[in-house]
Simulated assay, not measured.
Amino acid sequence: MSKKDKKTKKDRGGHDPAQVDPQSRKGGAADRAASPFKPDGKLSRKAYEKALFDLHVELVKVQMWAQETGARVCIVFEGRDGAGKGGTIKAITERVSPRVFRVVALPAPTEREKSQMYIQRYIQHFPAAGEIVIFDRSWYNRAGVERVMGFANDEQVHYFLNMVPAVEKAIVDSGIILLKYWLEVSMEEQTRRLEARIDDGRKLWKLSPMDLKSYSRWYDYSRARDDIFKATDSSWAPWYVVHSDDKKRARLNIIRHFLHHIPYEAPKREKVELPKRQKPGDYVEPDYPWKVVADTVGAPPSGG
């Protein structure tokens, strides 16, 4: 067993709650109390946060490794609306620097961008040395949402699917680590999540007219996914499918998979000690009428 394999096994503790089959954890009350799973088989919040803490430590090491070595990493997230792409990306990026882990979520193309070579608007966002770029949807829009919603014709989609393997070969040959994840959500779970957005004021922005139209075209998306996999699941840039009905398990599994495919090592660091503060000298706090934000915790939010 290699040093990296030993490290990975140690990090996972030998009993990764994200990998354990909940059906194998049957027993008495004591067993159920210690289980990392809820009665519905999904991972508990406590077990999730504990596992995520350890993974965040490793992601910080990846960040430092990328900065030190000049590595370039590109991660692609695709899947249906409501599959959990956004939550997974937040789980990856919430404890690292946005200047190293850059998230790219492009809006609809402008008229100028529509006149460019299709891949052009994506290439400009590729990582430079020391960067990890995460695409929240990517160039696969052409064969996914654009195909299903009628924004791209059959000829454009066919050309795209024929072109992509060679383009991704060039990306990998240039030294960029390319990982492609497809989050697969069930029909029932997608419905539950989209319905939940209707009555949740925090999620209204996630339910656009386009989302509603795409929801009705489940099997069109299935055909588009099947064609994408058939044409672009190459040996140099394979697709990794993640079942995401349990969002917590999916996030942990993706991060662990990502860490396994990045050849990082924690950089050596000197022991950090805070320096002594300077003495005040002749400094005196000013008698200034600061405009202080009032403490309104507990008060109802303003607005309509």
Rank of each mutant, 00 (worst) to 15 (best):
K61H: 12
F37I: 10
V73S: 11
D21M: 05
A66P: 03
A29M: 08
H15D: 14
A34T: 14
A29E: 13
S35F: 01
E58L: 10
E78I: 00
Q67D: 07
R45T: 13
Q23G: 11
L55I: 02
K42G: 05
A66Q: 01
P36V: 02
K61L: 00
G41A: 05
K42L: 04
T69I: 00
T69F: 00
K46V: 04
K38Y: 00
E58D: 12
K46Q: 11
K50F: 00
C74N: 05
V20Y: 00
P17D: 06
R45W: 12
F37D: 11
F77C: 04
K46P: 03
R72P: 11
A71F: 01
V20W: 05
F77Q: 02
G70N: 08
A18T: 11
V76T: 05
G13D: 09
F37Q: 09
A30D: 15
R25A: 01
F37K: 09
I75A: 09
V20N: 02
H15E: 15
G41S: 04
L43V: 02
Q67A: 02
R25C: 04
C74H: 03
K38L: 12
R32F: 06
M64R: 15
S44T: 03
A29P: 12
T69Y: 00
D11K: 03
L43A: 06
V62K: 04
D54A: 10
G70Y: 06
H15K: 15
